[in-house]
Amino acid sequence: MSVALEKGLLRVCATADVPLGEGRPVTVGDRRVAVFHTESGWYALDDSCPHRGGPLSDGILADRCVACPLHDRRFGLADGAALTDGAAVAAHRVIVRGEGVHLEIAEELEQAA
């Protein structure tokens, strides 16, 4: 379970919890979200690859995209756009305050939470 602080903002971890250049999954309601920590900032996408549900949080990050660990589909970190074939994946806004990494909860996520 996660703790909501103010409307629409959910603290998911501390900045130290995700190694630089990697992603980690978190459960928000009945949804899994992958939180990524990169040189160019923090990003979050749904954790399930639209292809066969591969865990994007385990993907390799580079050049502001993530490659799915199962069959290498690639997605833009900022918007979830599909850079190889197939569908895009939902992207969520991340807000970092001090040590805290927060997900800005889009409506659909809020419903799920």
């Binding site: 998911v12 999954p25 923090w42 970092v96 001090g98």
Partner: peptide, 29 residues
């Protein structure tokens, strides 16, 4: 890394600590 094998759900305990919230306009991406 302490979370080499863990996801963030395993970090529950820490996430449940009360925390300070800064002013919304200070939000940085």
């Amino acid at each position: 890394h302490p979370r080499q094998f863990d996801g963030l759900d395993e970090a529950t305990a820490e996430r449940e600590l009360p925390m300070l919230v800064g002013p919304p306009e200070g939000a940085a991406r």
